[in-house]
Design a protein around this nucleic acid. Structure first.
Lengths: 156, 156
DNA sequence: CATGAAAGCCATGGTAA
DNA sequence: TTACCATGGCTTTCATG
């Protein structure tokens, strides 16, 4: 059922709106994008069938839950064998403080974004968790001073 | 009304659940966290008042909307004056393909995550947009080969 | 063929006991 | 916590361009 779909201007408006606020009712959406409620409903269903929409999630304020500090951590692997890589990626997925992980081109193998409470917290994570992993040969950490922009909305 | 709030185990379960799926009804949430529907409702309201919850958003599949390629871009500024910084941050906020921006410690001033369709697309962005900005002295781009992990859920 | 208007059903949120 | 009620959104139908 994941067939491709031609996305027109109204679809784009719907996607943009729901990426900002998923609590909008079909009626509210309707007069925001200039279509009827029923039309919106049909379009959303089609977009869901096309697999364009993923989950609907509630975002939380990082500071309020003690995760206000972002650290970017470059990782160099001891081995590039497939099993080492998949073991590491599995490890990454098991650690909730690692919120993003990219396999990178260039001199480093992975880039992690780690959310922690403070420097002490990160030190513990780095020493006890990350550098304790057998696949990790080296890690270079860079602290973010502030998060200037962070959006889940992709341009359409 | 943004007063602090003591978060207990059930609150944590609620936050965790809603970070994964914000479409859960109070009833579904209730038996997932082991509380009554009414209790869930009260707790959510309190968490909202405490400012712990931010927006509810719909996530979209990057590949499906032609934003499957992630590029990390380090920026060095020409000036560190406040006005130059705020002008740059305003610029960042105006560009939808820049989805994340961190002010960084270390040798670079900013780290951007840019979502594009392909290399050509990024080239255009880099040459025409980013390097065209007066505040940007240098940029170093690193392409992600794949996104191994990406979650909006913060550990609580 | 997709859209817009209208209407009914149902689930949900919200409240009271 | 349980039960109830009423609001409002979801979903379908139908006529229209």
């Amino acid at each position: 059922m994941k067939q491709d779909r031609t996305i027109d201007a109204i679809d784009r408006k719907i996607i943009t709106a729901l990426q900002q606020d998923a609590t909008l009712s079909h009626a509210q959406l309707a007069d925001r994008v200039g279509a009827s409620s029923a039309s919106c409903w049909r379009r959303i269903k089609a977009l869901e069938n096309a697999g364009i929409f993923a989950a609907t999630v509630r975002l939380v304020d990082p500071d309020k839950v003690g995760r206000g500090v972002n650290v970017m951590c470059n990782i160099r692997m001891r081995s590039h064998a497939m099993e080492a890589r998949s073991a590491f990626e599995q490890f990454v997925n098991s650690r909730p403080e690692i919120v993003q992980c990219f396999s990178m081109s260039g001199e480093w193998d992975y880039l992690l974004r780690v959310v922690v409470a403070d420097v002490t917290d990160y030190n513990r994570f780095l020493m006890m968790v990350l550098l304790g992993h057998p696949s990790v040969a080296a890690a270079a950490s860079h602290f973010a001073l502030s998060m200037t922009k962070s959006t889940t909305a992709l341009p359409v």
